[in-house]
């Protein structure tokens, strides 16, 4: 479904991705693990066209998307939940969702489906999003991405700074989305969250995928974490 090969990305003079390659199938959750600065977020930004690739390709269902303008990428069906949520915090919950719906022709159905996953947002539609709690903001960031009605969803540290009950909610939503056939790339630091939702794990180091394996391998051999990420 999503295939990244030999992706090189530069940030100024420093190379942040050095031949990154990944594949992602329909209904699969792939988790990117790695130290800070390893290239996980840059990988997601490169998929979205927000970080320009100097070399390599990003293919969605066989079609090259790395050459598209950034605003065309979500129209092809890729939803993005950025690190730190990056809500339009002066806009209301409804307006944030409306921005997510702009690429859709039948927004009502998509909005209803997104709100069904996060009923609490239904009560907050008129509230300015910057005044929501951290958990509610994460719900809104995820719902906003779902309003694109994506086939692929990129989630960058969705549980960062959340309390345990909210982490469980986000995890349940990821499982639901996977069960609905969505392909998900998840950047996550919490190992227990990775183990509970991921199908495969990709260890990212120095801007490239060092190793990709089924999550079961990580369950069987936790020492892999210390080998690739330096924790565990």
């Amino acid at each position: 479904m999503l295939e990244i090969s030999d992706l090189d990305v530069y940030h100024g003079s420093s190379q942040t991705l050095k031949g990154m390659s990944l594949t992602l199938g329909k209904g699969e959750v792939l988790c990117l693990l790695g130290r800070n600065g390893a290239g996980k977020t840059t990988t997601l930004r490169a998929i979205m066209g927000l970080a320009r690739a100097q070399r390599g390709s990003v293919r969605l269902d066989g079609a090259e998307i790395s050459t598209l303008p950034a605003h065309e990428v979500p129209r092809r069906g890729i939803g993005y939940v950025p690190q730190g949520r990056r809500l339009f915090s002066e806009l209301t919950v409804r307006e944030n969702l409306e921005i997510g719906l702009m690429t859709r022709r039948s927004p009502r159905r998509v909005l209803d489906e997104a709100l069904a996953l996060f009923p609490r947002l239904q009560e907050r539609l008129g509230q300015v999003s910057g005044t929501l709690s951290g958990g509610e903001q994460q719900m809104l960031a995820t719902a906003r991405a779902l309003c694109i009605d994506p086939s692929v969803i990129l989630l960058d540290e969705p549980t960062e700074g959340l309390m345990p009950s909210m982490i469980a909610t986000i995890r349940d939503v990821i499982v639901t989305l996977r069960d609905h056939g969505k392909a998900i790339v998840l950047v996550e630091q919490r190992v227990e969250a990775v183990l509970s939702v991921a199908d495969r794990v990709c260890f990212v180091e120095n801007g490239r995928a060092q190793a990709t394996m089924p999550v079961q391998d990580l369950r069987d051999d936790p020492s892999l974490l210390s080998r690739y990420v330096g924790v565990g």
Partner: peptide, 23 residues
């Protein structure tokens, strides 16, 4: 809708692009 697009672009151009707004 036009105003919403303008306000979203004003607030965060990168995120606006990630939601299909041709900035």
């Amino acid at each position: 809708r036009l105003g919403l697009i303008m306000r979203a672009t004003q607030f965060d151009r990168e995120t606006a692009q990630a939601f299909g707004i041709p900035i």
